[in-house]
């Protein structure tokens, strides 16, 4: 067989993969499609916030507490921010910070987890015991405590949550990697004399990716909700940055007067987590269904 023939076959192989993705998306249930569309809209809002929002993020030129009008679709808050613009800018801050935190925690947690599963011995024992101790403290409580010690601020927030969340990721990554490590194909690679890098990146990682991706979706939701809760409690993202959690907190007194304004940012949070959950749920059913249908 010539190299050209092989090359065409390779490309054909790739195309079927792409076709697979399209086919999978076409077969997705409505709930998952709804989730994906919502996520897409949020992503667009976050990326193009300055172009979409009618007013700048920290603009307070308007009067406070204006009712909704053509200029201010949702009115203004007590300090005179255009509420709608704040809502859009908050997407950028809240989602961005949650995403960075989740990525960081994932990188740290899964690296440690896979290493522990592969090495076993003292490394696994040591890290596992430390993680067990951290797991015994609820994330929100620990985050509150640490923020009071090292002070509020976005950097501190990301670091603390990423560290705490990494312990949860570690547990899962270690468990799924342990399942993969005992497989005969890993032993076979070992017997061949393969190095650690090959075993991790060619034999183990491709096989534990589906549960890890699912977990990433759930971890993102958790981190996102925790940041929202901390901001709501006044120790998360700080003004003048717009953020949904603190927007609820800043305007919460309006509720008693019958204004639904603080419900909007809370709804924005809920809608995104519901959307991510719907997609994750579909993904979970698909991957576990494949395993059963063997």
């Amino acid at each position: 067989m010539s190299a050209i023939q092989l090359e065409t076959r390779l490309i054909k192989g790739r195309r079927t993969l792409w076709q697979n993705i399209v086919r999978t998306l076409k077969a997705s249930p409505n709930s998952a499609r709804f989730g994906m569309i919502v996520m897409l809209i949020y992503a667009l809002c976050a990326i193009f916030a300055p172009w979409i929002a009618p007013f700048p993020e920290a603009d307070t030129s308007a009067k406070g507490m204006l009712p909704s009008s053509w200029t201010h679709i949702m009115g203004t808050d007590q300090t005179g921010h255009d509420f709608f613009s704040r809502l859009i800018f908050a997407a950028r801050n809240t989602i961005g910070i949650a995403l960075i935190t989740a990525l960081l925690s994932f990188f740290v947690g899964s690296t440690l987890g896979i290493t522990a599963a592969l090495q076993r011995g003292w490394f696994d024992q040591g890290v596992s015991r430390v993680v067990d101790a951290f797991l015994a403290i609820p994330v929100l409580i620990f985050a509150l405590m640490m923020l009071s010690v090292i002070g509020k601020g976005v950097f501190n927030l990301i670091m603390i949550l990423a560290l705490l969340d990494a312990t949860r990721v570690f547990r899962l990554a270690r468990a799924v990697a342990l399942n993969a490590v005992v497989m005969d194909y890993v032993e076979s690679a070992r017997l061949r004399g393969e190095g650690t890098r090959w075993i991790v990146f060619r034999e183990i990682v491709p096989n534990i990716l589906p549960p890890l991706i699912t977990e990433f979706g759930l971890r993102f939701c958790f981190v996102f909700l925790t940041i929202a809760a901390l901001s709501f409690l006044g120790v998360g993202i700080q003004p003048p940055s717009a953020d949904w959690g603190s927007m609820v907190a800043e305007n919460k007194s309006l509720i008693s007067y019958g204004y639904a304004l603080p419900l909007y940012p809370a709804f924005a949070i809920a809608l995104l987590t519901v959307a991510v959950n719907l997609v994750v749920d579909w993904f979970l059913q698909r991957t576990s269904g494949l395993r059963d249908g063997k």
Partner: peptide, 26 residues
């Protein structure tokens, strides 16, 4: 299943303020 999936995804303060808005204020 679908009701609980939605509830789980919501922040506590969202549920709390909806209840306040409906049951206490309105």
């Amino acid at each position: 299943n679908s009701v609980t999936l939605t509830t789980i995804a919501m922040p506590e303060f969202f549920i709390a303020y909806i209840l306040v808005y409906v049951l206490a204020v309105k």
